[in-house]
Amino acid sequence: MATLRIGGKSSSGPRGKTFSTPLRKRLWRDRWMYLFILPGLAYFLLFIYLPILGNFIAWKDYAPFVGLWESPWVGWANFELLFTDPDFQRALINTVQIEILQLVFAFPAPLALALLLHSIMSERLKRAIQSIVYLPHFLSWVIVIALWQQIFGGAGFINQLLANQDMDRINVMSNPDLFKPLVVLQSMWKDVGWGTIIFLAALTRIDTTLYEAAVIDGANGRRRLLDVTLPGIMSIIILLLILRMGSMFSTGFEQYFLQRNAVGPEAAEVIDTFVYTRAFQSGDWSFATAVGLVRGVVAAFMIIGANWLAKRFTGEGLL
């Protein structure tokens, strides 16, 4: 189930016989297609694959005023730093902690909401609620955090209410101890609605005769949920879960960067913000590149591995 079709099956038809035509003729026949492919190909080569090669400065001691080519080679020194640099290790721990919290709380939330939405009988009410809960997904992180600050910030709505009641103010937005639950709640607020789309699509594809049969066999609502609904969408749950694992080390940048000053790096530094601050504030370009490269390689392996697992467990993968 739920395979993003990427390879695609070639359709039979006149073009099925292409292999008997000589290559030169085929190239000329498809000249327009090559013209269409060219700009996009140039984009991927220049802006994705060239920077991938650019990671070579991870093995150098790059300094902007010395230049890319003249900077000295230093072997694996920058990678060895990964094991000793305390700031990096803190960023790594923060990232993993946040990702685990996301997995436990933010991952199941859209599923619960989707089941709830699916049980609404009035189509119009369902549409209305969907419109509302999808919306935060399209707001930028800057706006999301501005909104949260208006509600929970020092001069925000809740603290104004508390002050009016002569109660103590509470510190939510700039409290390092609350930062991790806070970012998980923010992510949930932003994306719980959007996450329901894929589950709702899967729910509508469950064969309704299964429910009818279950009822005839005397299944109540709870049994139908456990024995029909959940098995029906289990493959999509596993697929999403595994993909989630694949992005384990990429929490994203903006949400953390925007709130890093308020709570301090001790609580808010994640791998992405670490790369940025190390390069742009400490000028430690090569080490930052090494961190980014290791993260990229680990992420790539996790995606490939997750895809392999998804294929094994659900029969189909994403790639």
Binding site: F47, Y49, G54, N55, G296, A300
Partner: peptide, 17 residues
């Protein structure tokens, strides 16, 4: 090549450079 771009992110610093 496109699929490769989905799997591997070149990294912030090389892109910036």
């Amino acid at each position: 090549l496109v699929l490769g771009a989905m799997i591997f992110y070149p990294g912030m610093i090389p892109s910036f450079l």
